[in-house]
């Protein structure tokens, strides 16, 4: 063989990778699926992109997030002094007055981190945005794959810490929902459509948070002898029931938190008045 004609691994034509690797069945098509395999990742990508677009706009808007007695879940707790007066709400200016940007940015990092490292959302965006893989048995376009073995994706292992942080955030949103039973003057004994919206939202957020795979592990999944820990075994079982619906809860809580914010935005901006039940 003449010098320089030996193919090196780096010079291997891309067409000879993956399912086209020599020795495997010689089929030129990168996949042979005949169903609409592209639909789920497309819908996932569009859904996530819509939420990212909406939440980015609302997080930076820094306006119309409070319509007494309701506060948008994007802006609670408020950790800077540049917040609207929330009348007994979670308005703690821990960051002082040097923070000049939207206060939502200080809070959203926690739910964002929780959802970004969530085992369900990882599947969703790996498939929807990164096509790794786009669908089962459909060849991915990447020449190399190291998964979650190195930076930055090895950081997905911090998911349980975001779970710990998501708990107080859910607690504060519960407090906000309870405050919805006060009227705009702070008197108890009120309920409006906004109260119902916040209650549904926080129920879904709790269900999503507790259905987390890390929660399931912490509750009892890490044990080897369930028989020695009956209470944790029972907790593990309950979380397991929720965990089986993790995808459903991830989407429903994502939609509900967006709709709760939108509702408060519309009431706050005067688009309509909050219908009052009592």
């Amino acid at each position: 063989m003449a010098t320089g004609t030996t193919p090196t691994p780096s010079a291997t034509p891309t067409a000879r990778r993956g399912v086209l690797t020599p020795g495997r069945a010689a089929i030129s098509a990168r996949h042979l699926r005949t169903d609409r395999w592209w639909l789920p990742p497309l819908v996932t990508a569009l859904g996530l992109a819509a939420f990212i677009g909406y939440s980015t706009w609302r997080a930076f808007a820094n306006s119309h997030y409070y319509a007494a007695p309701y506060v948008s879940p994007f802006y609670s707790p408020c950790l800077a002094t540049n917040c609207a007066d929330m009348k007994g709400g979670a308005d703690w200016a821990l960051f002082g007055d040097w923070w000049g940007l939207s206060p939502a940015l200080l809070v959203l990092i926690f739910p964002l981190g929780f959802r970004l490292t969530c085992y369900y959302y990882r599947k969703a965006y790996y498939r929807g945005f990164w096509a790794s893989p786009p669908a089962c048995a459909v060849a991915e376009p990447h020449a190399k794959y190291t998964g979650e073995t190195r930076l930055p994706l090895i950081l997905q292992n911090v998911h349980r810490y975001f779970f710990y942080l998501a708990l107080p955030v859910a607690g504060i949103l519960t407090y906000d929902a309870v405050l919805g039973f006060r009227d705009e003057h702070g008197r108890w004994g009120h309920m409006g459509l906004g109260t119902l919206v916040l209650l549904v939202n926080i129920t879904l957020i709790w269900a999503y948070t507790l259905s987390c795979h890390s929660c399931r592990h912490i509750m009892g999944g890490k044990l080897r002898h369930f028989s020695a820990h009956p209470v944790r075994y029972r907790l593990w079982g309950w979380v397991g029931v929720l965990n089986g619906r993790h995808m459903l809860l991830a989407w429903s809580s994502l939609i509900s938190v967006g709709l709760a914010d939108l509702y408060i935005y519309l009431v706050s901006s005067g688009a309509f008045d909050d219908p009052r039940f009592f």
């Binding site: 498939r127 089962c136 190291t146 998964g147 979650e148 073995t149 994706l153």
Partner: peptide, 25 residues
């Protein structure tokens, strides 16, 4: 660490074992 939990193993399992949720994660 190579597993990015995209659940194709679970989808194709003829025994309906929840490989991703109950073993890999």
């Amino acid at each position: 660490g190579y597993c990015n939990i995209t659940k194709c193993c679970t989808e194709v399992c003829p025994e309906h074992i929840k490989i991703t949720d109950n073993a890999l994660i």
